[in-house]
Every structure is written in C-alpha cells, then in structure tokens.
Design a protein around this nucleic acid. Structure first.
Lengths: 356, 356
DNA sequence: TTGAAAGCGGTACCAG
DNA sequence: CTGGTACCGCTTTCAA
C-alpha cells in the first residue's frame, strides 16, 4: 500500500541541490542543461533529481529567460473544419519545434479577438498566429508587434500591416469559377458568405472586413463586370453566420422570382447548408441550380451529385504560418513575407449549364 | 544563431508605482485588483498605468499565486470533427470561466500523450482534460493527480483511475444498433475501428485500449452472442487509422466471399471512407450493404442515401468535462464523478434488410 | 568547475 | 489605507 502523499510543495532545484550536496546554481545548471558541470556532479544531481522526482517549473524558467515556449493562436471557430485542419498544421510544426500552442476562439468577433490577444500577450506567448476577423481594425495586432512578439496572419492578410502572412489566391480562384459559370450561361449567380455587415446588406467589397472573402468577392464582381453583368452586388449575400441563418437566406433567394441559377458558397459549412435547402425545396443540383463551394471538405465528394469545390491547401496554410513564426522566433529578421498558396478547382458534378 | 530575446523592456508595477508616486505594493494592489486602496491613489495609479501602457505579466503572477489560469487539453487529433467539436465545448466553458486552453495532439500515441502531460504539468496548467489513448497505461495520469492537478477524462474512462470522467453510453448504443441489424436479418456484421493492436488483429475486447471503443465492441459482441452468432470476433477489424488504411481494409472485406452485409463504423471519418469504397466498388447502400456510423457528422444527412448514425452529444461531452474541471479548480472536493451522456440512434436510410 | 547573490515581475504578510 | 520586504523557482552574472 504505497499511499503516496499529495506532493503539494513541489520539489525545487534547491531541494535537489541540497540532496546532492551541491549549490543551487550547480544543480540548476545540470537540471536546466546549460553551463558546464563535471560528470561526477552531474550524476549526483541527476540521481538526486530522480530520487526526489523533480519536475521543472517552466513558468519560473520563462520568468527569467523571457521565452515561454508557447505560441498563441486565434482563429474564428475551431469547430469549423477549415480551422481545425489549419490548426493541425500549426500544432504539428509547433510540436516539432518544441513549442506548445495556446488556442483561443474569437467567434469572428473583433472585440473577442482583441481580448484574446491581450490575454495571450499577458501570458507572454513567444509569438502569435491570428486569423483576423477584421482587416481594417488592426490596432491590437500592432500592439503585439510593438510588444516584440512576432505575428503571422493566417488566411487573411492586411495591407495596413507589415507582418508575415500566408493566404490562398482567393481572388484568382473566385475569378476562375465565376468565368466557368458565366461560360455555362449563368447570369444570376449568387455569392454567399458568413461575413456580415452592420445592416446585413452588401454594397461594395469594402464592406467586407475579412480579407480572404473580400478578395473572392472582388474577383467575382470583377469577372461579372467584364462579362457585362451589372448590379451583381445585389447577388452577394452576407450574414450566413450559422446554419440557421444560411437556411433562411438560401430559402429566401431560391424562392424569389429572379432566383439564382448558381450559388457560390464561401465555405463548406455554407455549401452544406445550401445543399440541404435544395433538397428540402425539391430543387435538383445541377439541373435547377449549380453549386460551387470553397473548401474541399471531406463530404463534398460523396454527395449526389458530388460538389465542385475550390480546394485550398488548408493544412499547408497552417503549417506554413507556423514555420514562418518559428523562423522569426529563431531570429529571422528579414522583411515580412507574404506567402500566397495556390488553390485548385476540383470539377465534380454540381455545375451544369444554366437552365433555360 | 542569434537568440535575440523577444524582450522589449516591458513596464512593470515598479515603473507604474514610481510614476504614480506610490509604493510598489500599493500600485500592485490596484493593478492586481486586490486589497484596499483609497480612490485618490487608485486613480493616480490607473492613470500612470495607462500613460505607461502597462501590460501585466501573467507569468509573474502565476509564479506567486500558483495558478496559471490555464487548462491543458490532450486529444487524439484536433482535425477529427469529433475532437474539434468537443474542443469547442471545452473552450467555450473555459473562456467563460476565465481560463485559457493549451492544446496538444497525441495522435493517439501513448508515448506522445505521456510527453504532452509532462509538458503541460511543467507549464503548471491548473488542470487537465485528457482523452487517453490507452486506458491500461495510466501512470502519467496518476502523476498529474499526484501533482495536485485536477484531471478529467474525456470520452474514455478508466476503471483504474479515480478521477472525473465524462463519456457516452457507447455500449448501450452499440447494443441497440446491433440488435436492429440482427432483427433485419443481418448475420455477417462487421465492426470497424481506428484502434489498433500490435498485430493488427482482433481477438478479444481487452485488446482494445480505447475505452469508448472497447465498450462498443463489448456491446456488439454481447448482442451477437445472445442472438446465437458465434465467432463474431473475426468480424471486428482494427487499424483503420487513416483513410488509406480504411480503404484497404474495407475493400478487402467487401471482396471476400463471406463479405459482410452490414458494417458498423466506429467514427465518422471511417464511415465516410466506407461510403466511398462502396461507391468505388459499385455496391449499393443499403441494398448490398447496410451502414451505421458512430458520430452524427454534418455530412451524414446529405448523402444518397443519408446514413443512419449514433448521435453522440459531442459538444456537451467537452462542455461537461470543462465544467467538471472548473468546479474542481474552484475547490470542489467531492468524490470523482462519472458522467454518462445519452446517445441516440438517428435512423436514416443506409440500413435495410439483409440481402438474401 | 563551482558558489554566492542579484534579479525576473508580481503577491502577500506585517507593521505603521 | 499604505509602505517595506520577504519570497515564488529558476537563470545568470561575477568571483573564487
């Protein structure tokens, strides 16, 4: 019956030093793996440490070194497969580089994001990876930079900030699928995003604070204009923040007299909901409606019909961001880099000629 | 390598105190929000703090208080929708309770999990939520408890450990769907899980270290036995650790002479792969094969046919675990609780009578 | 190679 | 109510 008593007062370097019969400094040297010690002393300390079951206190260590071995990550919603996959990329790189990750969800709310960064900074994370909710509002990001904490922007850039960022070529992707849709005869093409505006209406791309989405919409509208399609701004729908919202919006547009013949969904969560609504309404994809979704989510290939998507290198987005950050933390002082990862359209069967 | 310490000379309480013309102790009181101070002094300190842009150092605070305001979470794979949803539940509760979350992926590897917990303990997290890869191997979990850090087990319990745990009634769920399948005439029912064994073969439930899965298999085998079905152990397949593995295993079993007429997938990632293989093989669900999957992933309702699933309260699993942990951290010393959340079978259209 | 002592940035106890 | 001061656990000069 080894009733190991609760070891409340944790054993410290001082305890180990005493037991090993050396000074605190010496014990600290071997325990911390720095400085130089004789083999004899090293063994003695190591033995004492094991005997006492010494557990280092990283907090105390960080206190003096100034490095916490931690990187803070702020994403919109870890439940979204886009972010959870990117997060996987981040954690993989971080772990390998010896860093641990602190995660905070912003819920795409600028205020929450601000608080998150403040918290992270207070906890003295070594660096930050943020997927900013609003590109326009970047004061808190500046603050991070000012506090000397390297920052990498994920999936969403910002022209106003001179920091590393890794994004996808969203605009190009949006242009590609829009052209394709138009070539197939579509004229009433809707773009649907979770991003919202104060009055839940869209007027111009500058209404959209989320960089990646704004770039897509710019691409979409640009191609439409080229093709002589006017007033397509009215076909951009914002505020699909939850499946319920999306349901309402899609049902509305699909039941209007000038209903769209094609919908571009800004992420897979929205794409899925569009799919469901079509089913509920008895509309056939792609006969009645063509659908293209951003994010090659796993399920998109098994629906009937499988859905055409814009494949983004999501894992690599996270991976690259983390690599960039780790480099900074290792003293890379080169100027801020802006990595743009290629996307690819995966043609499946949810797109067809526009119905006559 | 120039290890430039990311230490901008941050402003401390001492600086603020000096500027406000009060003692360090007093400044600390207002900045830390404890003790009592006169309004006049409070204002002075607050003003000085703002003027200097004082940012508290949580590390230093934790150092003396012993609380870091942090909880460590170890899950198998954040990319898996099951875990990312549970994680959402955890972070929501944590944030509201004023805690921040450190996430580590174990990749379902016991050694990695061990290292993760060691790291977390060294960083002095206040408590832990772990989804243990192996129930049998719990030394490191004991260590956490011994270090005085409350621990809550997520989704997987352990008989050997007297700690809080929140799990789903997996066994009951498995029994239910197995009965249903048998009632429909199925006799060759396969169970497929990502859990692996040293030789990649299954013999007895005790081969399975993951608690939740073991309980399901026990339920499955129990019902089979009751129904007079023998040797069903041979129909339990392990090692579906990646989509590729799953693909190989499913293709194999579906092409064997005694191929199953029904498959139970232990999670949605596996369920999806089974679905894909059937398609590739030209098998019809549910005419040629019935499919039931654990985890009501979002896509399961939009396939053709939609798939029958065991709905687990995943978000609530995480939420409850976090609540339990927060209670402990607030001084609840009651004995360990074992919360079992109900599951529910969502009947859709992937299950039918066994083909003759 | 080893030891003594001074911090790191707060908190907390105690006296005034 | 306020100030003085001893820590927390570890790193890091600086001497010896």
């Amino acid at each position: 019956m080894d009733q190991s008593p609760p070891r409340s007062p944790s054993v410290t370097v001082a305890d180990v030093a005493r037991k090993a019969g050396v000074s605190k400094a010496t014990a600290a040297r071997v325990l911390g793996g720095y400085g130089t010690v004789s083999d004899r002393v090293r063994d003695a300390v190591t033995a004492a440490a094991r005997a006492l079951d010494y557990q280092p206190n990283e907090l105390a260590r960080s206190m003096t070194t100034g490095r916490s071995g931690t990187i803070g990550v702020v994403v919109g919603d870890i439940e979204n497969p886009f972010f959870s996959l990117a997060m996987r990329g981040i954690t993989d790189v971080a772990r390998q580089a010896g860093f641990t990750v602190v995660l905070i969800n912003s819920g795409e709310d600028a205020e929450a994001e601000k608080a998150a960064i403040r918290t992270l900074l207070a906890k003295r994370v070594d660096g930050l990876i943020v997927s900013p909710a609003k590109e326009s509002d970047v004061g808190h990001l500046r603050e991070a930079a000012r506090a000397g904490r390297p920052l990498v922007l994920l999936d969403r850039g910002s022209e106003m900030l001179d920091v590393d960022m890794v994004i996808a070529d969203d605009r190009h992707a949006a242009e590609g699928i829009t052209r394709r849709l138009i070539a197939l005869g579509h004229r009433r093409i809707a773009y649907l995003t979770a991003c919202d505006t104060p009055d839940h209406r869209f007027r111009t791309p500058s209404d959209i604070n989320t960089g990646s989405v704004r770039r897509r919409i710019q691409g979409f509208l640009g191609v439409c204009r080229e093709a002589g399609l006017d007033g397509m701004e009215d076909r951009v729908h914002v505020g699909a923040v939850t499946p319920e919202h999306t349901h309402r919006i899609v049902t509305g547009m699909l039941q209007s007299s000038q209903r769209p013949t094609a919908i571009i969904a800004s992420d897979s969560v929205i794409g899925l909901e569009v799919f469901k609504v079509c089913r509920a309404l008895g509309l056939s994809i792609p006969d009645d409606l063509s659908l293209v979704s951003f994010h090659d989510a796993d399920w998109t290939s098994v629906t009937t019909p499988p859905v055409t998507v814009v494949r983004q290198p999501v894992y690599r987005l996270g991976e690259t961001a983390a690599k960039l950050l780790v480099e900074r933390l290792n003293g890379n002082h080169a100027e801020a880099s802006r990595v743009v990862l290629q996307t690819k359209v995966i043609e499946r069967a949810s797109v067809a000629e526009a119905p006559v």
